[in-house]
Design a protein around this nucleic acid. Structure first.
Length: 406
RNA sequence: GGAGAGGUUCCCGAGCUGGUCAAAGGGGGCAGACUGUAAAUCUGUUGGCUCAGCCUUCGGUGGUUCGAAUCCACCCCUCUCCA
């Protein structure tokens, strides 16, 4: 493939490239020397579930792989023990080495749903960062000023709002940048929120007389709430490893406003088909619900195949449009010893079945008319329920349990 | 080291001339209604406890008081200014 053709593939759906000229030059040089580019992605090891937001970046990496380039996933085992200020108003919790290794394993497994495992290398940045001496760190730190560090939105905002910024957080960009130096990265990918860190890598590579890496910044996907960036800690994410029904349901729960964004960033539909959906919605010929159903099917199919997507849709319709029970209702073991005369106080039963955290919460749910036992609504928080094996307790629309008596 | 401002329930943020405070308001979560879907909107709810009552919460520890998120002492932490 020619360099221009590669450029066209790589530019597609990418928010920003710093700089395009550098990328073109690197591609040309790589082609002449028939040496693949080394493309780096840093992974935060604190939240091991890969979600659709990560997938945007991973798909771009996949394109690099398909163009014959080399992908290196850098697991921040070292940085994970420091905490990344990105997108956080507070410093992150520090992780133990065991947690980091376990998370990395999960990451790798999930990333391979998108990446080509044969062309993916995993590296742990502790490998080189833990070898640096205090003297080395001081030298690194002497290359950058506080004022420049505060250019970073995250820091300046906290500074302005008089919220704490800990000194060690300033080292995060250095560490990530040093990763690029250690790996001699040609390209680093990340969300647009990673711009500062990735550019920092360019700066540091120059200091080490390396050709600065190209920053490839991918758009940020909003979460299911339609407001904040998709992230595990906010809890507004759709994970690539989630079961089809969960994925389908979560997609159906996004607000109509962000539907098109999801079409663009979370599916692999060709541009003209996405455009057709947009036009259909705008003209009113396409019902928003139907557009969202299709979106949900596309997303599920991407990770579980088209058959699972159809099945998820059928189940969704059965459960939420018709109010039926889902395919597999989780079993809740109830100890026979807790029964009085074969009966149990309803709030207690709900808690025992794992459908509420406390009897207080269960009482409230009953008061609110959310509880059904075998399709019969329970309205009295004092009620006792005759417990039979196989009976189904439903709390709200989404929580179910089938009773098993042990 | 000195001076000042703060630390409140999941988050933000009132309260802080002592009881009427399990603590306003907003966000988020959950539920109900409606519906076009786990959209939107509206309403309710949001510490625990077999619950018209009781128990534990307002940075920590002690104290004053019949009674403390509210007053006092000491300690810990954050921010600002000075050095």
């Amino acid at each position: 493939m020619t360099v221009e053709e590669q450029m066209n593939v790589l530019k597609k759906k990418t928010a920003e490239i710093v700089s395009e000229e550098d990328l073109r030059e690197k591609l040309e040089r790589a082609q002449r020397a028939s040496r693949p580019l080394r493309v780096k992605l840093g992974l935060d090891p604190s939240a091991p579930d890969i979600h659709l937001g990560h997938a945007v970046v991973l798909r771009k990496l996949r394109e690099f792989q398909d163009l014959g380039h080399e992908v290196i996933l850098v697991v921040g085992d070292f940085t994970g023990r420091i905490g990344d200020p990105t997108g956080k108003s507070e410093a992150r919790r520090q992780l133990s080495q065991d947690e980091v290794v376990e998370n990395a394993r999960t990451y790798q497994e999930q990333a391979h749903k998108i990446l080509d495992p044969a062309k993916t290398r995993i590296a742990f940045n502790g490998e080189w960062l833990s070898k640096l001496m205090f003297e080395d760190v001081i030298k690194l730190a002497s290359k950058y000023t506080v004022a420049r560090m505060l250019e970073r939105e995250e820091f300046s905002e906290r500074f302005r709002e008089e919220r704490p910024i800990y000194i060690h957080e300033f080292f995060y960009p250095f560490m990530q940048a040093y990763d690029s130096v250690a790996l001699r990265a040609d390209v680093e990918l990340g969300g647009t929120d990673q711009k500062f860190n990735i550019l920092f890598g360019r700066m540091l590579q120059r200091e080490y007389d390396q050709q600065p890496q190209v920053a490839m910044l991918m758009p940020i996907l909003v979460g299911t709430d339609g407001a904040k960036k998709m992230s595990k800690s906010v809890g507004n994410y759709i994970g690539v490893a989630e079961p089809p029904s969960e994925m389908y349901g979560k997609t159906m729960s996004i607000s109509d406003d962000v539907m098109m964004t999801f079409y663009e960033l979370a599916t692999t539909l060709p541009d003209d088909e996405i455009e057709a959906v947009r036009v259909g919605l705008a003209s009113g010929r396409l019902h928003p619900r139907d557009a969202k159903r299709r979106l949900a099917r596309e997303i599920v199919a991407l990770y579980h195949g088209p058959r699972a997507a159809m099945a998820a849709e059928e189940e969704f319709d059965a459960v939420f449009r018709e109010g039926n029970l889902p395919e597999d209702v989780p079993e809740a073991p109830i100890s026979g010893a807790d029964l009085e005369d074969g009966r149990m106080w309803c709030p207690r039963l709900i808690v025992a079945a794992g459908l509420a955290d406390s009897t207080s919460e269960a009482r409230r749910l009953i008061d609110q008319g959310a509880v059904r036992v075998d399709d019969k609504r329970v309205t009295d928080p004092q009620a006792y329920v005759a417990v039979r094996p196989g009976m189904v307790i439903r709390v709200g629309k989404r929580r179910f349990a089938r009773v098993r008596v042990d």
